[in-house]
Design a protein around this nucleic acid. Structure first.
Lengths: 139, 139
DNA sequence: TTTGTTGCAAAGGGTTTGCAGGAGA
DNA sequence: TCTCCTGCAAACCCTTTGCAACAAA
């Protein structure tokens, strides 16, 4: 639908002290082009095997540290990564049929989440929310 | 504070067609005694090594299938398990200081969670919510 | 006795590390 | 040139599987 709000390029890479290598840019491009979380193997295949597995892992770690990507812990013990377009606090919703993801702003729920721990005497400081559903095209 | 709402014993085991072996009962006991999520290795240590790793994995799988336990996907790629006291839909909140967990009922938020996907055109079918905070003793 | 369970050992598979060669700045 | 990065190979380590011995019912 809309173009990504932000895009990481060679300039942004150098701005944080990272070298703009072809591999690095290719991984970012794949990540940006994908609407669903990608495993390291997914990325390697989309690169046509032109990047080594360790390189992909190391760079994804960099990107996560920079806040450019997010790693999603799946139940299948495989790390998957999505590009973060918004920098603030947000969550992802993933389509159960096609795997596509979207970002959702959760302002409305944030407040009530904070109160959830109260009955148990807990003070809520942080939360992880993973949403699953059906995207417009799969409904 | 209060005793567990339910407790799994030899009778419950046999009721679902499982044999009440000493290992099985010991694992359940450890799980019930713990207020925080346990890794397989945690459990093995608390059993004094009297159960093999594969046995613990296999039994935890059984327990999860029965709804007696839940596996929590951690960011560290290690499976951890908690005893479920309530059978319905619920979430866990974990103390960031001591690791203790409690179950929280989320009726109040369930409805609003379902609406979160709407702006992105998604129909929410399922969600995973992990809450972190400070328990009464760590505040 | 019958069937499910255990435990050992080994395999499996995703992720990380070491290190030498190579490329960006 | 200097530093960082890549890629190969191997190591790591959590988890699963195969199989023979064993125990619950």
């Amino acid at each position: 639908m809309n173009a990504p709000e932000s895009s990481v390029d060679a300039v942004s890479l150098r701005a944080v002290g990272l070298k703009a290598t072809p591999q690095r840019r290719a991984i970012l491009k794949v990540l940006e082009a994908s609407e669903r979380p990608l495993s390291v193997e997914d990325i390697r295949q989309q690169l046509g095997g032109r990047s080594g597995i360790p390189t992909i892992y190391r760079n994804l770690q960099c990107f996560v540290e920079q806040g450019w990507a997010e790693s999603l812990a799946g139940a299948d013990q495989i790390m998957r990564f999505v590009r973060c377009h918004s920098t603030g606090h947000h969550h992802h919703i993933q389509c159960e049929a096609c795997g596509r993801t979207a970002e959702v702003q959760t302002c409305a729920v944030e407040a009530s989440l904070a109160t959830l721990g109260r009955p148990a005497g807990f003070h809520v400081t942080r939360h992880q929310l993973a949403l699953f559903g059906l995207c417009p095209e799969c409904q």
